[in-house]
Design a protein around this nucleic acid. Structure first.
Lengths: 96, 96
DNA sequence: TTGTCATATGAAAATATGTTCATATATTTG
DNA sequence: CAAATATATGAACATATTTTCATATGACAA
């Protein structure tokens, strides 16, 4: 049965990751368990402040976790399952 | 390896479906194979023109197919695989 | 302390998405 | 042909997302 609220919730989460930079972050964290902002910034070509906005927002929306250690902030995936979405879209793109 | 273009492509597709109404359409078409605009409109509470915009755009972005039969236009999923994304996010939401 | 490095924040500007409304087009029927 | 039905389109507007820039904060080291 079609549950509109459930779809809206799903859309909310999807929106939070439907961006090239954000998907890159997720992909990086799929492999590395946790990375600090500078490490992520080096691997992506993304300006410091912009990356920070992305990370902060993904955290606010329940996608990422953050842990401070000294000067650094280490980000990780709150739920590893999210990486399955990456595989999923990728397989969709192929089969086109 | 991190391929930014691939991620941008994935983001493009994800954006095209990151909306409650659009996910509902996909969910309907997952079950029904094909439906015309009126049938979709009845099942969703979505104004004619707005639904049409959504459908047209999803079609332009390679998510949906469209076939005209007389006065009606029948929409279907271009690639059934896309429905796996629905399952995927849903399983993510649960595991939170 | 002061300086420096790592990161966050806020506001403004740029851009994209979603929505509405009026109207257009295609098809069928009388 | 005119009217009715199904759907699309375009412009205007509202709202959300993305980007930039300047500045703030927290932690550490000298």
């Amino acid at each position: 049965m079609l549950d509109i609220n459930q779809m809206d919730q799903a859309a909310y989460t999807l929106k939070a990751i439907s961006n090239g930079t954000r998907l890159c972050v997720i992909s990086l964290l799929a492999d590395k368990e946790e990375l600090n902002v500078s490490e992520i910034g080096e691997r992506l070509q993304c300006e410091q402040s912009l990356l920070s906005h992305h990370l902060t927002d993904m955290r606010a929306k329940g996608i990422l976790n953050c842990r401070r250690d000294g000067k650094n902030c280490y980000y990780s995936l709150k739920n590893k399952q999210i990486t399955k979405i990456l595989d999923c879209i990728q397989s969709c793109q192929c089969a086109e």
